[in-house]
């Protein structure tokens, strides 16, 4: 049996994700998404990845979801759900969910492909070997500026490209066609 904190946050995450999928109101879906992301961040903390947990809350649950909420409130009309319930796609989705969930349970629990070893001792805060799992954010910086320097540069360039792309996409289409 896993420990109580993991069960609590796993249940919170799955419940919030179900709210995201099932709610007919887009704003409620966004709230479920935020809760699910916070639950995943808590699981990062349980996995001793503190820096990634903080990053998840700041970037995902904070910035990205604020962007989503802005666009949802800008675009979604509140008087929806007048048409009939999409039973056909709901049945398809339920079938896909049970297929995937059964596959995950079989693969990770019953097949014995994943070793049942515990995580072991708490990882060190810092280590001489840069590729060993450490909890301090310094471990990230050390690898990002040595082994992963080129991917870091590409990620920075990608952010610039995204910035320019968003600006050009957000221009008024009427002006472009004139």
């Amino acid at each position: 049996m896993p420990d109580g904190l993991f069960i609590f946050f796993a249940a919170l995450t799955l419940g919030a994700a179900s709210l995201l999928v099932l709610s007919r109101n887009a704003v409620t879906s966004a709230m479920g998404m935020i809760l699910a992301l916070v639950g995943v961040a808590a699981d990062f903390f349980l996995l001793d990845a503190y820096f990634l947990g903080v990053l998840q809350v700041l970037v995902y649950a904070g910035a990205v979801m604020v962007l989503f909420l802005f666009v949802i409130m800008l675009l979604t009309d509140t008087a929806e759900s007048a048409e009939g319930y999409p039973w056909k796609s709901a049945a398809l989705g339920l079938a896909v969910f049970f297929f995937l969930a059964a596959g995950a349970v079989w693969l990770f629990v019953w097949s014995g492909a994943v070793p049942g070893t515990a995580a072991g001792a708490t990882p060190p805060e810092l280590s001489v070997n840069p590729s060993v799992f450490v909890t301090a954010a310094k471990g990230f910086g050390r690898l990002l500026y040595t082994k992963y320097l080129l991917p870091l540069e590409i990620a920075g360039f990608l952010l610039l490209v995204a910035l320019v792309g968003v600006v050009s996409l957000s221009k008024d289409p009427v002006d472009e066609n004139a």
Partner: peptide, 13 residues
């Protein structure tokens, strides 16, 4: 809490 528990949570998500 083993690796399988975390992977199961990820798979269900």
């Amino acid at each position: 809490t083993t690796l399988a528990h975390h992977l199961l949570l990820a798979g269900l998500l």
